[in-house]
Simulated scan of single mutants.
Amino acid sequence: MSRADLAVVDTAAARPNPLWSLGLLRSELVTTFRRWRTVALLGVLAAVPILVGVAVRIETRGGGQVGRGGGEGPAFITQVTNNGLFLVFTALAATLPFFLPMAVGVVAGDAVAGEADAGTLRYLLVAPAGRTRLLLAKYATTMAFCLVATLVVAASALAVGALLFPLGDLTTISGTRISFADGLGRALLIALVVAASLAGVAALGLFVSTLTNSGIAAMATTVGLVITVQILDQIPQLHALQPYFFSHYWLSFADLMRDPVYWDDLVKNLELQALYTAVFGSAAWARFTTRDVTA
């Protein structure tokens, strides 16, 4: 066999099979969701709506009104006692500033650094996946976790809301009445928007994960950056920069409960997440494809 024939055979052998790429993604999904850490994070997220629902139920048992001390808590919380479906919106508003991005930061930060720390990154790269495909599989897995985590919060809140409070037609922020089926559809759409709102955090965490061989350091750094950005987003003197922070439009999902829906901030949020994904995803790719993997 000539050298040219050998080169063709070697190139064909080195070219990843699309089915193999799907197998890589499936392996990443199974590995991530089987970890006790992932299960624990989902358990904590599922517990938040339970705590909120029980707290509202206890506070209103004697005929009191939740939030009577000045409107504390998420904007939807005063409506929970009238319709348990509002607990879904309240739980998502309560978990989005900290619990959800923290969980995503842990998963994203551990994506590459955790493999290097465990000594398995080199063996993953020996397989015919390529660094780009492996990085894409890691990001897709992180986004799958974003979706699952958001749906866990929504499902837990819906179950608790149905158990503790009445269900039925509900009043939108605009004051109009919509059916329970319409409200349920909007709740699902809100959950999807919240999951998409975490895309920037996922890309940031993946980039940080390519910078170190310590999974714990990557996770801590990502969570620390998320907290720092949200603190900066509350400082009035930085109002000119705040529209560019990935967390600035997170709570715009409330506009989906208006009639008609206000799309301006929702679109800005999705555009901002796409921008962060492009910037930090490209940075992660540039770093990972040129990285000397010795782990």
Rank of each mutant, 00 (worst) to 15 (best):
residue 6 L to M: 12
residue 7 A to P: 00
residue 9 V to E: 15
residue 10 D to K: 11
residue 12 A to S: 13
residue 19 L to E: 06
residue 25 L to P: 05
residue 26 R to D: 04
residue 28 E to T: 05
residue 35 R to D: 05
residue 36 W to N: 11
residue 38 T to G: 04
residue 44 V to P: 03
residue 47 A to N: 04
residue 47 A to G: 07
residue 48 V to W: 08
residue 51 L to M: 14
residue 57 R to E: 08
residue 58 I to W: 11
residue 59 E to T: 15
residue 60 T to M: 10
residue 61 R to D: 14
residue 62 G to N: 14
residue 64 G to T: 05
residue 68 R to E: 15
residue 70 G to K: 09
residue 72 E to L: 11
residue 73 G to D: 09
residue 74 P to A: 15
residue 76 F to E: 15
residue 76 F to I: 00
residue 78 T to L: 06
residue 79 Q to M: 09
residue 80 V to W: 08
residue 81 T to F: 00
residue 85 L to S: 13
residue 85 L to V: 10
residue 89 F to T: 12
residue 94 A to I: 01
residue 96 L to Y: 02
residue 98 F to N: 01
residue 101 P to C: 11
residue 101 P to V: 08
residue 101 P to Y: 10
residue 101 P to N: 11
residue 102 M to G: 12
residue 108 A to Y: 03
residue 109 G to M: 06
residue 109 G to F: 06
residue 114 G to I: 01
residue 114 G to R: 05
residue 115 E to Y: 08
residue 117 D to F: 00
residue 118 A to M: 09
residue 119 G to S: 10
residue 119 G to L: 07
residue 120 T to H: 11
residue 122 R to Y: 06
residue 124 L to H: 14
residue 124 L to A: 14
residue 127 A to L: 13
residue 129 A to Y: 14
residue 132 T to I: 10
residue 133 R to I: 08
residue 133 R to C: 04
residue 136 L to D: 01
residue 137 A to P: 08
residue 138 K to D: 09
residue 142 T to G: 02
residue 142 T to A: 06
residue 142 T to W: 00
residue 147 L to T: 01
residue 150 T to R: 02
residue 151 L to V: 13
residue 157 A to E: 11
residue 159 A to N: 07
residue 160 V to F: 08
residue 161 G to C: 05
residue 161 G to T: 04
residue 162 A to L: 06
residue 164 L to R: 10
residue 167 L to T: 15
residue 168 G to R: 07
residue 170 L to A: 12
residue 173 I to K: 00
residue 174 S to M: 00
residue 176 T to M: 01
residue 176 T to H: 03
residue 176 T to K: 02
residue 179 S to C: 07
residue 179 S to Q: 07
residue 181 A to S: 13
residue 181 A to K: 00
residue 181 A to F: 05
residue 182 D to H: 04
residue 185 G to V: 03
residue 186 R to H: 08
residue 187 A to C: 13
residue 189 L to D: 03
residue 190 I to H: 02
residue 191 A to M: 10
residue 192 L to P: 03
residue 197 S to N: 06
residue 197 S to R: 01
residue 199 A to C: 13
residue 205 G to L: 05
residue 209 S to P: 07
residue 210 T to N: 11
residue 211 L to T: 14
residue 217 A to N: 01
residue 219 M to H: 02
residue 220 A to D: 02
residue 221 T to K: 04
residue 222 T to W: 09
residue 224 G to H: 09
residue 225 L to Y: 04
residue 229 V to K: 01
residue 231 I to A: 09
residue 232 L to G: 13
residue 237 Q to T: 11
residue 237 Q to C: 00
residue 238 L to T: 05
residue 238 L to A: 12
residue 238 L to P: 06
residue 239 H to T: 12
residue 241 L to R: 05
residue 243 P to F: 07
residue 244 Y to N: 08
residue 250 W to S: 10
residue 251 L to I: 02
residue 251 L to H: 12
residue 252 S to T: 10
residue 253 F to G: 04
residue 253 F to S: 05
residue 258 R to A: 08
residue 258 R to K: 12
residue 261 V to H: 02
residue 262 Y to E: 10
residue 264 D to R: 12
residue 264 D to E: 14
residue 267 V to G: 07
residue 270 L to D: 03
residue 273 Q to N: 07
residue 273 Q to S: 05
residue 273 Q to E: 05
residue 273 Q to F: 02
residue 274 A to D: 04
residue 277 T to Y: 07
residue 277 T to C: 14
residue 279 V to N: 13
residue 279 V to H: 12
residue 280 F to H: 09
residue 282 S to E: 02
residue 283 A to P: 04
residue 285 W to C: 05
residue 286 A to H: 09
residue 293 V to E: 13
